[in-house]
Design a binder for these strands. Sequence first.
DNA 1: TTTTATTGTCTAAAAAGTAGACAATAAAAT
DNA 2: ATTTTATTGTCTACTTTTTAGACAATAAAA
Lengths: 235, 235
Amino acid sequence: MIQFNPQDFIPQLSIDSVIFGYKQKKLHVLISELDFGKHVYTLPGGFIKQNQSIDEAALTILNERTGVKDIFLEQFKVFGSSDRKNYEISEIFSTINSSEIAKSLAINKVWLSQRFISIGYYALVDINSSQANPKSWFPIDKLPELIMDHKEIVTEALIALRRNLDEKLIGFNLLPETFTMRNLQELYEAVYEKPFARNNFQKKMLSLGVLERLEKQYTGAANKAPYLYRFKTEK
Amino acid sequence: MIQFNPQDFIPQLSIDSVIFGYKQKKLHVLISELDFGKHVYTLPGGFIKQNQSIDEAALTILNERTGVKDIFLEQFKVFGSSDRKNYEISEIFSTINSSEIAKSLAINKVWLSQRFISIGYYALVDINSSQANPKSWFPIDKLPELIMDHKEIVTEALIALRRNLDEKLIGFNLLPETFTMRNLQELYEAVYEKPFARNNFQKKMLSLGVLERLEKQYTGAANKAPYLYRFKTEK
DNA sequence: TTTTATTGTCTAAAAAGTAGACAATAAAAT
DNA sequence: ATTTTATTGTCTACTTTTTAGACAATAAAA
């Protein structure tokens, strides 16, 4: 594991990422829990190396936390109020998860306690193919108390997700490789927090021409087996 | 005029703003021209004071350049590629328009030649109520060669504008206080670069319930006089 | 008084979205 | 083997929205 060295990073600028996952028919968010005396909850975040683009920096964070690469990731808003400081010096702990390194953090306390402007990213991952601790996934309506403005960042991320789910057809990133139409509908219902009519939802999705119909899924349930679908990459 | 003092600002972070205006039935963008030896064209930009929010900083830039305050302004994207440096040290000149201060710039050359991450803002102003030099307004399809990635920033700003024009009903910011339905339609046609059907455009706009119909506008033209409209603030 | 260029709005047609209905089916219950 | 139950896939009708065509009203010039 590497040493945290302030001069390798861009000062006063951070990245906070809202990593969305989907399980138990609910939208979840990946939260870092830090235990130093009291428990503190934060969004996964980090800093930008001098030789790294902001997208690469965000990808690095995502990769560290979930083990997933090659996933949907997009900046959505910058949080830059003038009083945006971490009075608890806690945000930084969320970016480095080794107690060994914690010692050197004291040295960097000054660096870290400056005002920070943060670029918000949101990511969509399939929880099943993620290596994050399952306990780190919190239902979006049952988040713990988050530090600083992280709650607001989640709220804004959800707005961005809703705006893009339909338009950019990114929902598939939250599901496993194959899924039923019902799975997809329940995902939409979780994101928009409202029900969709089954018949019309199916018609709409099929009309988009982005779903490939596969074999049927026999689960043993006493009813007609649904088709599995896969998101068409390209031809 | 104030002295530029690097330690008052957040390092390696800038703001570039795409200030849109509308005249002669075309969308225009405000461009700064810098003459040091050869002519260089840039977007109006600046830096963020340590005690300023990013929105305040963007507003300051807008105000300096156009004299307009209380106008629509919104961040739309961060530009953060790892090689984003100003090899010509020219971007900075666009942020300070006094040759007197230019001397002190040499001292800050190191500060300014670092890699910069830039927050893109776009603004909508009524050109008629702006104090900017009319020659600084360029039609968006006839922009001069811009430094760095400023051309790309304009392209992204236009995408953001198109996405929001309908949804947030912000187009009125580009027009004078009162305008005819034809004015409004031509604005939309300029932004989207496509024609709209006159009858249906009018029906649609009126159905939104945000326009207040005023008296007729008699211009002396040999035809039926159109109504003037005003954007309803609130009641 | 007639002509011309535009404006405001009406109606019909097409497209998209919504709601109700029902046959098909996988497996459990009889 | 037959019936029952829960769900799925799709069809049709209805409603709303969007698009296209038409035309009377009008301001000022001819």
